[in-house]
Write a protein that binds this DNA or RNA. Structure first.
Length: 490
RNA sequence: UCCCCGAUAGCUCAAUGGUAGAGCGAGCGGCUGUUAACCGCUAGGUUCUAGGUUCGAGUCCUAGUCGGGGAGCCA
C-alpha cells in the first residue's frame, strides 16, 4: 500500500489499496449494512474531497463515527467506484488483512466551538481567522491559484530570456517618491539621538533626529518599488524583472489596498512604449491561459460561486487584442459620452487631469468592452522618470510622457508602465522641476551617462492580478495574512 | 484621512423603550450508499466597550473600538 494524495486518489485504478492522509471535511453516517460512515477527506492537493467509506465492522468504528470537521486521519483502504461515479476509498473489516484501517491522528477539541463549520461563512468573519480560513473551499482555492500564478509569472519571463533580480527590501534613498514609507531603524524610540550643534555636548530636545548612530548610518525605509533598482540590471542584462514584497504606509482603507503587497516589475532594454504594451498584453494573456489550464478545478469553483461569468470574462480578454488609445483621444471619447448623454460622471473630465476609476471603467467596460491600453499621459500628472514625448504627439494640447495604463473590465487599472527617460539632460530637468533631491539620484543618473539606452517597463500588483483572475472582491482575501491599517494580526 | 452603514448564541440574522428568538452548526436519538442529506429532542447569551437618559435600554443619546461599502492615495 502506498500513501497518495487526494488528487492522485481521484484517478487511481480501482482495486488498489492506498493510504490517504488528510482532514475530515464532513461525516455522514448510515445504519444500513451493519453501519457506515461517509467521510469527505481533503488534503489541499486539489479542490475536491474524496469520500472514505468506513464500514461498521472495523475495529475502531465507534471512534470513527465521532469524527468532526477537520479531525486529522490516515485512512488505508481499497479504491472502488462510487455508485454515482468517481472514486472512493472503502475501509472495511474484510480488508484488515491488507492493512485497511482508519488511524485518528488529531482530534478537534470542543467541536461545537470550532469556528470553521461545514457551512457558508462570510469573508469578513474568516478574515479574523486567517490561520484557519485556508481550510475552507474558497481560501484553499485562492492559495492554490496564488501559487500557480506566481509560478506562471516566473515561467513566462524565464521562457522569454528574462533574468529574475532580487531588488532590496530596505532602501536607503527617499527618492522613489511613491507615497509614505515605513521607517526601518534600530534607534531607541524612547530616547532618539538628536543632532548636536557643533562643539556642543548636548542637543536640544526638538533638534532634528541624528541618524548617524542608526544601523545603516542614515535614514532607511522599506521599499515602495523595485523599479529604480531593477533598471540598473536592465541596463546590463537587457531583460529583467523583479517580484517581491512592497510596502506603502498609506492610510488606505479600501478593498483594493494593502500596506504589504507583492509587485512584479519587468524592465526591457532597447525598447519603447509599444514594446512595453506588447509585453504587458502577452503577459496578461499568458497568465489567464495558464490558470485556465493548470487550475481548472479551482477556476470552475470561482466561476460558479464567487463571480458568475468569470470564465467568460477571462476568455473574452484572451480572445480580443488590447485596444490602444492615446490619453488625449480617451478624453475626447469621455467628453463626447457626456455631451451625448451616454454617461454621467461624478468628476469632471479635463485634459491634464488624471482619470478617475469611473472614467477608466467607462472606457473599458462600456465604450470598448475590451481591455484598453491608455497611452501618452500629460507630463504633469506622471512620475519624473517617464520619457517625455515629442511636442504634439497624438495632437495633445500640452506636453506628454510615454506612460501607459492597462485597463480591464471589472477591475480597472491592472498595469501601469512607461518608457523611461534615457536622456540625462531631460531627466535632470524633470528632477529639478519636481523639486526632488538630485544628489540622491546619482546612481540612477549614472545609467544615463554610461551607455544609456531606451528602456521601458511596467508594474503589476500581484494581488490585483489575483482579484482579476479569481473574481474575489477584497484584496485582503487573496493574500494569506493581510497587512493594512490597524491590521497586523497573525 | 473623509462620507455612509453596521456590531445580539459557534456562524448568518430577527426582536413597537416592557419575559432575548429562528435557521444553520454542535450534542443525543431516529431514518437512510450518504454526499449542502432528512426528521425529532437538547444545550448554547456580559446583546462590542465606557458613560448617560428612563420606573425600565438589545432598542434612545454621547464617546470610543472594531468591521463593511464608497471616496482619496495608488498597485
Amino acid at each position: 500500500m502506498s500513501w497518495i494524495s487526494v488528487k492522485q486518489a481521484a484517478k487511481a485504478a480501482p482495486g488498489t489499496t492506498v493510504t490517504l492522509k488528510g482532514w475530515v471535511r464532513t461525516r455522514r453516517d448510515s445504519k444500513a449494512d451493519g453501519g457506515l460512515s461517509f467521510i469527505a477527506l481533503h488534503d489541499g492537493t486539489c479542490f475536491d474531497t474524496i469520500q472514505i467509506v468506513a464500514k461498521g465492522d472495523i475495529a475502531n468504528y465507534a471512534d470513527v463515527a465521532k469524527l468532526t470537521t477537520h479531525c486529522a486521519i490516515e485512512a488505508t483502504g481499497k479504491v472502488v467506484q462510487n455508485p454515482k461515479g468517481g472514486n472512493e476509498v472503502l475501509v472495511d473489516g474484510a480488508g484488515a488483512g491488507d492493512g485497511a484501517c482508519i488511524k485518528i491522528v488529531g482530534l478537534v477539541d470542543d467541536p461545537d466551538k470550532y469556528p470553521i463549520q461545514p457551512k457558508p461563512h462570510s469573508f469578513e468573519f474568516l478574515r479574523e481567522l486567517a490561520h484557519l480560513r485556508v481550510r475552507t473551499n474558497t481560501f484553499g482555492a485562492v492559495a492554490r491559484v496564488r501559487h500557480s500564478l506566481s509560478m506562471a509569472m516566473h515561467r513566462f519571463f524565464d521562457e522569454r530570456g528574462f533574468f529574475y533580480v532580487h531588488t532590496p527590501i530596505v532602501t536607503g534613498s527617499d527618492c522613489e517618491g511613491a507615497g509614505n514609507m515605513f521607517r526601518v531603524s534600530t534607534l531607541d524610540f524612547a530616547n532618539m539621538p538628536r543632532v548636536k550643534p557643533e562643539g556642543a555636548k548636548t542637543a536640544a530636545p526638538d533638534a532634528p533626529i541624528d541618524y548617524a548612530p542608526d544601523f545603516f548610518g542614515k535614514e532607511t525605509h522599506l521599499t515602495v518599488s523595485g523599479q529604480l533598482n531593477v533598471e540598473t540590471y536592465c541596463c546590463a542584462l537587457s531583460k529583467v524583472y523583479t517580484f517581491g514584497p512592497t510596502f506603502r504606509a498609506e492610510n488606505s482603507n479600501t478593498s483594493r489596498h494593502l500596506a504589504e503587497f507583492w509587485m512584479i516589475e519587468p524592465e526591457i532594454a532597447f525598447a519603447n512604449l509599444q514594446d512595453d504594451a506588447k509585453l504587458a498584453e502577452d503577459f496578461i494573456k499568458y497568465l489567464i491561459q495558464t490558470m485556465l489550464n493548470d487550475r481548472a478545478d479551482d477556476m470552475k469553483f470561482f466561476d460558479e460561486r464567487i463571480e458568475k461569468g468569470l470564465l467568460v470574462r477571462l476568455k473574452e480578454v484572451l480572445d480580443k487584442p488590447f485596444r490602444h488609445l492615446p490619453y488625449t483621444d480617451g478624453i475626447k471619447i469621455l467628453k463626447e459620452a457626456i455631451a451625448s448623454g451616454k454617461a454621467k460622471f461624478e468628476y469632471p473630465i479635463e485634459w491634464g487631469k488624471d482619470l478617475q476609476s469611473e472614467h477608466e471603467r467607462y472606457l473599458t467596460e462600456q465604450h470598448f468592452k475590451q481591455p484598453v491600453v491608455l497611452m501618452n499621459y500629460p507630463k504633469q500628472i506622471k512620475a519624473f522618470y517617464m520619457r517625455e514625448n515629442d511636442p504634439g504627439t497624438d495632437g495633445a494640447p500640452g506636453p506628454t510622457v510615454a506612460a501607459m495604463d492597462v485597463l480591464v473590465p471589472q477591475v480597472g487599472e491592472i498595469i501601469g508602465g512607461s518608457q523611461r527617460e534615457e536622456r540625462l539632460d531631460k531627466l535632470d530637468a524633470r528632477i529639478n522641476e519636481m523639486g526632488l533631491p538630485i544628489k540622491e539620484y546619482w546612481w540612477y543618473r549614472d545609467l544615463r551617462r554610461y551607455g544609456t539606452v531606451p528602456h521601458a517597463g511596467f508594474g503589476l500588483g500581484f494581488e490585483r492580478a489575483m482579484m482579476f483572475l479569481t473574481g474575489m472582491q477584497n484584496v485582503r482575501d487573496v493574500i494569506p495574512f493581510p497587512r493594512a491599517p490597524k491590521q497586523c494580526e497573525f
